[in-house]
Design a protein around this nucleic acid. Sequence first.
DNA 1: TATGAATGAGAGTTCATTCAT
DNA 2: AATGAATGAACTCTCATTCAT
Lengths: 228, 228, 228, 228
Amino acid sequence: MTAASAPRRLRADAARNRQALIDAAERLFAARGLAVTLDEIAAAAGVNVATAYRHFANKHELAHAFLEQKIDQAVAIAQEAASAEDPWQGLVQFITRSLELIVANRDLHDVFTPGHKRESLDRLDQRIDPLLTRLVTRAQATGALREDLEPGDLSVILAMLGAVGDIPAENQELLLRRYVTLLLCALRPAPVPLPGGAPAQARQAHAPRSGAPGRRADGAQASDTVES
Amino acid sequence: MTAASAPRRLRADAARNRQALIDAAERLFAARGLAVTLDEIAAAAGVNVATAYRHFANKHELAHAFLEQKIDQAVAIAQEAASAEDPWQGLVQFITRSLELIVANRDLHDVFTPGHKRESLDRLDQRIDPLLTRLVTRAQATGALREDLEPGDLSVILAMLGAVGDIPAENQELLLRRYVTLLLCALRPAPVPLPGGAPAQARQAHAPRSGAPGRRADGAQASDTVES
Amino acid sequence: MTAASAPRRLRADAARNRQALIDAAERLFAARGLAVTLDEIAAAAGVNVATAYRHFANKHELAHAFLEQKIDQAVAIAQEAASAEDPWQGLVQFITRSLELIVANRDLHDVFTPGHKRESLDRLDQRIDPLLTRLVTRAQATGALREDLEPGDLSVILAMLGAVGDIPAENQELLLRRYVTLLLCALRPAPVPLPGGAPAQARQAHAPRSGAPGRRADGAQASDTVES
Amino acid sequence: MTAASAPRRLRADAARNRQALIDAAERLFAARGLAVTLDEIAAAAGVNVATAYRHFANKHELAHAFLEQKIDQAVAIAQEAASAEDPWQGLVQFITRSLELIVANRDLHDVFTPGHKRESLDRLDQRIDPLLTRLVTRAQATGALREDLEPGDLSVILAMLGAVGDIPAENQELLLRRYVTLLLCALRPAPVPLPGGAPAQARQAHAPRSGAPGRRADGAQASDTVES
DNA sequence: TATGAATGAGAGTTCATTCAT
DNA sequence: AATGAATGAACTCTCATTCAT
């Protein structure tokens, strides 16, 4: 984590091009998903395709780089939320802001290629997991959050809300607010315990892949619990 | 099954081919998303590509036809649920069964390409909307369902749960049950009213695309309501 | 070896195209080696590149198909030579005609791609080895050919003469004749035995790859034998 | 080594770079033929591609420069051989050593692209021709070498043996020795005169390309002479 | 002078779609 | 009506070569 990890300072113009590529990728990925061609991205960035290939070994590498930026943003959001004065408001803030990030980058899931580079995502897990835990623990300590909610649930909740973001609507913001509110209702202390556990932890919200159920705590099986 | 989709009575073998194509498409789309080639689908159906083109103007038409079948199934599910003895259980059953249908056809969203054929989906709306309304109304009448929930919300809820289905997990069924339960908590009568309204109605659960927000002008703004 | 091995009779036009592609490949490979692009070959054959890909999975497959034809020709030459009335003349004829084939297809060696499809070449071995043995045995029986020459030597001799064919000359035919004659001198019964043995058998003349030395028979080490 | 190839005296480091490039080219060309990229060569030499371009106008220039060095080595071999005590042994030595040089630099032919720089090769002719003539004349004077062999034949003989070097074999050295011996047999005084004449002179052994046949009008046509 | 970066012109390959039998 | 074959337009990626520091 010293200077070694930094990829040898780029020349000014190269750095500019690199960023231009990532920005273009962001715009295009967000607008049309993984389908965009590298030629298009390069053109949008004002450089030649070959230049894109100097910076990124292949299309997936570019998607990856683009992701890394998003990850940084996601972590920043979580950090700020975890330090909020009121734990419950911190949780709400985390969900709201993360959702904005996700919605602004539609089709982000496509970006995660099958057998490719899971590194950055794993790194996301490592950075964000403690923050999620803190968000949940603090809120539960105040009694504002139901006891059986686990940190990993937050990722899934974001995934669910992200799906709402895919619904085209005249007033999308209001639509999202509606379902955020709905879900928040579900997060309040409730008599019906949740069956199963959250998936392993984190990330799934952004990248569907791997992940195990959870520790579980389904004591009572109230009638509202869905049975298999 | 929908007579409307096959305007002229087909010769027996042609009809068999048509169905074989749709079945093959179902299998392949489900397994690998939009990436499959028409050649592959045709081969899997045991016919030539050109034959596929006799039945479907293009790849999207085929995907569309495939969808029509799913729609029929979705309507059937809604019908049965709307006639359930216990309204609340009917609602739960609707969600559960629909979710199964959605999850079994993962990657279904890819199938919808930007400017293509919305007809069949609109038809879904027409057939399913009354059923959703009945589901909701009945449940609200018994006091089991919160008053501010609208029929259109059901589609969105299914869309959210469908997103959970995209998360790979060791025990996917348990995972889904967890979040179905979570959402059911949110559907119970609650002091916090939902802001906005459900999107225009129906469908988005299966096919996110177009559609307007809702009519409601939100009354009370409890502290759990997310503000813009 | 019945009809099963034939790749399902092609339609007339397809067969025409296929042959046109092979012919074009022959012309271009002969003239410029493996460097030619598939686009060029397809253009020369008057078809679209994609058509080339319908017939041949990739560039190497095409080269391979082209080779198969050459192999047939080579086998025919060997067959005729092995049945010549005068064994020595048969040998001379084999060398002369094979050389013509090789020279007419300059850069034929390039065609043999590293890790690809050695099948057809191995098949050449199987078909041609007995013929080479017969050529050598018969000539040795009449005392016209030195006793220590092995069938596998013939391939190497052709490889050597093929190298002469790569030398640009005003009168190439005469040039070739000169060195064929020179080598024939070396094939006559001689007091100096050859060290080592011929490589495993056949093929090396056309495709440098694999192959083990030989059985060996170097009894006396006359002064003309090159020592290590 | 050839002063002519470096017109202006280079600064010490520049000269070092130049040589490093040639050495790297040698290593890589020998190992993988013309396929290597200039980037690779430059990297192997520890310099930047652009630096390579300061020293060599293009890829072929570099190959060319690399050749120049080989030529110096070839000339040295010929010189030593021409001064051998026993003329026949000198000839054998020349062939053996030259062959080693050729085999050690396989794929050398690829280096010669159609319309490029023949100069250095012509210069080889000028330097080596007298030596070849001396080798042949001396050997013929002792009666050890057939009378109709011409100096230019030696290059062709090396070209032929070089082709043997392209054959992969478990014991390549033994394989080469076998065919060197075979050819030496052919060089002994023989009753069958060679038709035609050697190509113009020299070089073809290393670089097959252009060049005219020979002057000789063939005299007697014994039965072993191959007729057109 | 030497470097890092950029570039244009392909090369090989794939696929939705259309044509001719 | 159904097939085999053909097509053109892309797409990803590479490399010799040139520019700007």
